[in-house]
Amino acid sequence: MKKSDFNYHLPEHLIAQKPLPDRGASRLLCMDRESGWIADRQFADFIDLIGERDLLVFNDTKVIPARLFGRKQTGGKVEVLVERILDAHHAIAHVRASKSPKAGAVIELDEGHRCLVLGREGDLFQLEFPGANLFELLEQIGHMPLPPYITRADDESDLTRYQTVFAREAGAVAAPTAGLHFDQAMMDKIKTKGAQTAFVTLHVGSGTFQPVRVEDLSEHLMHKEFFSVASDTVDAVRQARERGGRVIAIGTTAVRALESASRSGRLEAGFGDTDLFITPGYQFKSVDAMLTNFHLPESTLLMLVSAFAGYESIMQAYRHAIDQSYRFFSYGDAMFLGEVKERV
């Protein structure tokens, strides 16, 4: 398949610019993975889609306030988006300026902080933050890194709403958006129903928003993201299989973590960088169903869900979502891919 096969027209007004007042108030498009049958529901109905033998796997990554604003010593404005923290004083980052800074340049940040440009790694810059712990600096002067299709500036509410209620491992510069729909009340309902939960970590990078730029998908270079799958999660998956339950991934990032840890053919505990690129024809090894948001045209995530539930079915579901005015992307509505008819 080619990149252009995954294009679709989305009216701009369907791109959600703000979250709904309540996390669980989103709509839920349910699609039966086998037949392609779809139903319009509310996210509150998600609890009816799961059973007591099932295992829900969440991504517990925590979004860091990774966007910084500053100036060059010559006075020009600079925007820094930290892509990955290397240690307490070093990071690689995107730097936006009228003219790219060279090695040795100093960027003056808010509240008297500064960073030094050490060099470049392709499109990214190597930065040093002397005299301050980088995590503490970001908490002090950083802004939440809202996606480029959200055209407003971040505000105080984004500190909590662009973060899942179960976030605990700091390192992402984009939220695992399917998890944003869950509030504590829904987590409690899952526990009451008897379904099990487990966690993986995948630090979502800004590359998740980048469209594929080559028509031939085999030529696409996937961005790398750190992932970790612990032994207790591997055990939880095994136990779910033994009791006849399904492994339901909450978000494409949880899918990528599980499938990255399954490259040997079976799920194994481990951690590292993953560049797994899932396209139609991929054979899933560890995931039976998933909850996801709606994804950008020609994006790797749209290709992933097409691989999971079938290209024609997904494109039909997206056309339906547009016709029914679903809200798209990070702060938008959700979609469930799995067994549906018998469970709703």
Rank of each mutant, 00 (worst) to 15 (best):
K2L: 11
D32L: 01
K102Y: 04
L296M: 14
F199V: 05
G112N: 06
D288N: 13
Q163R: 13
L134G: 02
I107G: 11
R84S: 09
E339Q: 15
S264G: 15
D154R: 01
Q316G: 04
E298K: 12
T252F: 09
G112Y: 08
L202C: 06
R246K: 15
A185L: 09
R71M: 15
R96W: 01
H143M: 13
F308E: 01
Q196G: 11
T208R: 07
T177C: 03
K62C: 14
I107V: 15
E83I: 02
A93P: 11
L217Y: 09
S306T: 00
C115T: 14
R319I: 00
V237Y: 12
I141Y: 08
V82G: 03
H223P: 03
N7I: 00
S35F: 09
V106A: 08
D288V: 06
V80G: 09
E339A: 14
T61P: 05
P130C: 07
V204H: 02
R213E: 02
K99I: 11
I38V: 15
H143G: 01
G36K: 00
K3Q: 08
A25R: 04
S299F: 09
G310L: 00
E156S: 13
M222N: 05
M144H: 07
L14P: 04
R238I: 04
L28I: 06
P145W: 14
A321E: 04
F271S: 14
M31W: 00
M290D: 06
K72W: 05
E121K: 15
L146T: 08
P211L: 02
E111N: 08
